[in-house]
């Protein structure tokens, strides 16, 4: 943690959201400062993926209360593309296969759209290719993957690595990783985590959403939050994740029920 201690990057206040009339988020509060890594853990159905979807702007979710500011701007007012161009990146749990759109063309379009948004000149073709080559080396990406259609026929591990590669290319301020570890074997997990760690620069922040502690052995969080029934019910440091690994989620559930009854 070397970012400005007084600056807030992401502030979520009492966020409530539902899908198809079903309440999923029941008042989330979270503050992320530059350079911080936050882990959000929780049992299945706690609302983890809903939180990442709402932050990225997925249309199926309806925000029914609360606010989210990103570097002082109202995030919830923005279209998904504007959120991205302001510096929010969502690493998908299930990256979509898009036949016929090459990774190269896709990234060039994304980068130049972002530059346009920020009032910058588009990147020249040669400069872009050089930049991409550098990031590919950094992320240890196989060249063949970028010449193929986006995620088409990629294995689970390749898709997740491609997400991290895209992150390296788009250089976001805040990355939300939605269960990036799901379905990864240990080698892929190591590669994905190494990629993420290389992108840490003291300014960039990460919200790592995961069910298991395993990923946090590699991407070490500054804060760990437990999400249950759409609220953050417990926060702590990295040791909380270890505790959850040993004890599971049941004790937290019990604690919450007891509080509710009291």
């Amino acid at each position: 943690m070397s970012g400005d201690k007084n600056k807030v990057m992401l502030e979520i206040k009492d966020l409530k959201a539902e899908i198809e009339g079903k309440k999923i988020l029941n008042g989330i509060n979270l503050v992320v400062k530059p350079g911080e890594v936050h882990a959000i853990m929780g049992p299945n159905g706690a609302g983890k993926s809903t939180l990442s979807s709402v932050l990225a702007g997925r249309a199926d979710y309806v925000v029914t209360g609360g606010e989210v500011s990103f570097n002082g701007k109202d995030l919830l007012e923005m279209s998904p593309e504007d959120r991205a161009r302001e510096g929010v990146f969502l690493a998908f749990q299930y990256p979509v296969e898009i036949p016929g759109v090459s990774t190269t063309n896709f990234l060039k379009t994304a980068i130049n759209e972002k530059r346009k948004y920020l009032g910058q000149e588009p990147m020249e073709a040669t400069a872009f290719l050089k930049f991409m080559r550098e990031k590919m080396e950094l992320m240890e990406m196989d060249k063949a993957l970028t010449s193929r259609s986006l995620n088409e026929g990629f294995s689970g591990g390749e898709k997740k690595r491609n997400e991290v590669f895209q992150m390296a290319m788009l250089e976001p301020k805040l990355t939300i990783m939605d269960e990036t570890d799901s379905g990864l074997d240990i080698d892929a997990l190591r590669l994905v985590s190494a990629g993420v760690n290389k992108l840490k620069d003291g300014e960039r922040s990460f919200v790592v959403i995961t069910h298991y502690q395993r990923l946090l052995d590699y991407i070490v969080p500054d804060f760990v939050h437990v999400l249950y029934k759409g609220r953050i019910v417990k926060s702590g440091d990295a040791s909380l994740a270890k505790e959850l690994e040993v004890k599971g989620y049941d004790w937290i559930k019990t604690e919450v029920e007891q509080e509710a009854n009291a």
Binding site: A56, G57, R58, A59, S79, P80, E81, R83, A84, R85, F89, L90, F92, P95, V96, I98, P99, G100, V101, N105, F106, T109, A110, E113, K114, Y117, S149, Q166, L170
Partner: peptide, 21 residues
């Protein structure tokens, strides 16, 4: 949504997908 979440505006994303199709 995937394309838009990478900063590609809706109209550009639509064209990319239609061209690919």
């Amino acid at each position: 949504f995937y394309l838009r979440s990478r900063g590609i505006p809706e109209n550009v994303a639509r064209k990319l997908l239609l061209n690919a199709f």
